[in-house]
Nucleic acid binder design. Structure first.
Lengths: 249, 249
DNA sequence: TAATATAATTACCGGTGAGTATCATGCGGC
DNA sequence: GCCGCATGATACTCACCGGTAATTATATTA
């Protein structure tokens, strides 16, 4: 139906539409109907994203058709379009969900006043957990090539934020003496991110090591772990503090 | 043409075919020679693979049609089928070509009697060079998901060979005292491979650091570089020999 | 129960892209 | 000149897939 308002080619986020509506029509009109954000809907949308992430992980983005995805969910393809605007958006959400897990760890670390080494360890653990999660594949393997310009740029920004966060922690660690590395933070961050991202390729559920253990191993490997002797002399034994402090984990 | 011998569904390597033929028909028959291994043909085939690798790197495997590829080569699609059996084979060759560069480095290292640390350094340099080459993308980003079972298994085997080679070198280094790492070889190899593979994502031609320099940096980072106190003697006199070969950037 | 919004379905469209059947040309050897 | 072969182009098929229109089912509310 060509006359239906708002159904044009432009990609309209449902939320934006809703916001515009409620802002325009004010609140006393009976039509301003608070747009009962039925929780149900978001749950289903999340199920679409999660199922898609798993399917993409197994068969790849391009080898997973929307019919496949719909079948996995026990519905038909058009139903999917009630929750997402197109396939690209699904990939984008997978991307974002995974990256957000890491960014959450980063913010958590920023809010802490533990030594930088411990904050970095936290982020690395979160990173490893995210990579080995259902959304890990999308972060590592899916490529910006499959995203539109805007979405690709958005993902790139998120990735950059994570990269910068790692570098900042490394610099902070050098500053407060809790980290001693032999190479510059930039290269170190690249190497660390690479090692972590690669987990997405080899780490399988049921691996002998938990993702936390791998994260710990990488910290040691990069010379910023508790087992490094170089650390011992530089700053005292308080390195365990944040490790066992009330963090949920 | 269903009648043409050897043109069935099975993927036959041209070289194997040629070898089998010449072995069977001996060398005096006038029909034995027609295998005029016209060098021209292999050159063209290589061009197909290389051009494909570059296109895949930029736009991705699934976003590059054979028509695109043909256009890049200034021919039409059916022409491509004179040199490869299908698109999958192109991807496989890209994979293999890249991996072979690393395997060559591995064999080179095995043939050397230098300390394991230097042999590892050589492999890491070769690895970094391969990843930043035109075929780097295929090794890292392209996934086995797009390959048939047999080809996927073949690639997996090659990858495993490389992984085992890295572990072997690490163990050898621990054995001869030229490498001192704080974690087990398996995890170290994963981290090292990950850091190197990730170069395919961030390294661009014209980067401030050459791939050799990055490789050197990683060696340092992983505690097996020349800056490590465990290595006091600059015993590496020959490690520069192979360094300058191969890179064009 | 009527009105309405949402949810999901059936049936389709348009485009694309891998792979093929068939014909045309150039070339070396007889 | 003719045959065989390699190489290439034109024009096509065939299936799949993303996305949509029209329609039915379900639930909520007045």
């Amino acid at each position: 139906m060509p006359g239906k308002p708002g159904s044009g080619k432009s990609v309209r986020r449902k939320s934006e539409l809703g916001a515009a509506r409620s802002a325009a029509v004010a609140s006393e009109s009976p039509w301003a109907r608070p747009r009962r954000r039925s929780r149900e809907r978001e749950i289903k949308r999340d199920a679409v994203i999660l199922t898609a992430a798993r399917a993409f992980q197994r068969r790849g983005y391009h080898n997973t058709s929307l019919d496949d995805l719909a079948a996995l969910l026990g519905v038909t393809k058009p139903t999917l379009y009630h929750y997402v605007t197109n396939k690209e958006e699904i990939l984008f959400e997978c991307f974002r969900t995974g990256l957000d897990q890491i960014r959450a760890g980063l913010r958590e670390a920023d809010a802490s006043d533990a030594p930088a080494r411990d904050r970095l360890a936290l982020v690395v653990r979160r990173y490893a957990a995210a990579i080995t999660s259902d959304f890990g594949w999308c972060m590592v393997r899916a490529e910006d090539q499959d995203l539109s310009h805007e979405m690709g740029a958005a993902i790139k920004a998120l990735k950059s934020e994570i990269d910068q966060g790692l570098r900042r922690l490394l610099r902070a660690g050098i500053g407060d003496g809790s980290i001693a590395i032999a190479t510059e933070p930039k290269l170190t961050a690249f190497a660390l991110a690479g090692a972590l991202n690669w987990m997405g390729h080899w780490y399988r559920a049921g691996e002998a090591l938990s993702s936390d253990e791998v994260a710990e191993g990488f910290m040691v490997l990069f010379g910023v772990g508790p087992a490094t002797k170089a650390q011992r002399g530089r700053y005292n034994g308080r390195s365990k503090t944040a490790q066992s402090s009330g963090r949920k984990e």
